[in-house]
Design a protein around this nucleic acid. Structure first.
Lengths: 128, 128
DNA sequence: TGACATCCAATGCGCGTGCATGTAAGTTCT
DNA sequence: AGAACTTACATGCACGCGCATTGGATGTCA
């Protein structure tokens, strides 16, 4: 057995835990209080805005699910919240009527662009 | 502004997210299915067993709270679950009757020692 | 000593999550 | 075409979490 791998993994996990909790809590609080967005809601907007450049701003639920650490049901509800808030629209897919296309609305794009600097500055504070 | 600090923080956060989610999910599942313990329950046992060597196996709620990434209320309920399961006992503190001392029961010690290798092996798998 | 602030832990409450299931749409095989 | 299977998404449900509040114990100051 290799010496050191034992105690070290625990310390590494501890450190990961610390970084994750402090960062995600601060992200959550800042995004919520300043932009009325939860962290996973912001991350959906982030992924959608990435798709914007590539595929005309459309994304399938399944693709989003694969890109995020969120269960299918949680994603579905998160999108429902965003839709209710008018930040995102669901559109049926012509070729597969089971699937949904998601698009940022103008309001969604605006909200995301307002929130992105907040998100970025928290990350820089913790990782910069 | 320093070049690189921008895109990098996002990638670092992404990586932290990935490691945290994959590891904590696997810990949660393994501990739950093999030892009927949630991750935060295990972590309470872990902290208590650390105290065991130092202060006779007693720990105050406040000290645990400081050592863990859990709110006061969440910790209180986690300890309640552990107490119901017979793994931990609450004992009043003679000097400050607001505070509680916590102790591992023999069953708690046994359960922890059974679960610790599972915990360790998951960590080694992800960090080793 | 009496009034007031502080502290510890428990609890009511709302929320977001994952798991299991339901429903509708597409696919495959004969 | 029809039956059996698979896939995409929504929903019922139980659970753990954080926030705010409560109740009881301690400390402080006049």
């Amino acid at each position: 057995m290799e010496a050191g791998s034992d105690g070290d993994v625990c310390a590494k996990w501890s450190e990961t835990l610390r970084v994750y909790h402090t960062t995600s809590c601060e992200l959550e609080n800042e995004l919520q209080s300043r932009h009325d967005l939860g962290l996973s809601e912001f991350e959906v907007l982030l992924n959608l805005s990435k798709c914007c450049g590539q595929s005309g701003g459309k994304a399938k639920m399944k693709d989003l699910e694969a890109a995020m650490y969120l269960s299918q049901s949680a994603l579905s509800r998160t999108v429902t919240r965003l839709e209710r808030a008018g930040l995102v629209t669901r559109a049926a897919c012509d070729f597969d009527r089971r699937a949904n296309f998601l698009m940022l609305t103008p309001a969604g794009k605006e909200r995301f662009e307002a929130a992105a600097p907040t998100h970025r500055s928290v990350l820089i504070k913790h990782f910069g």
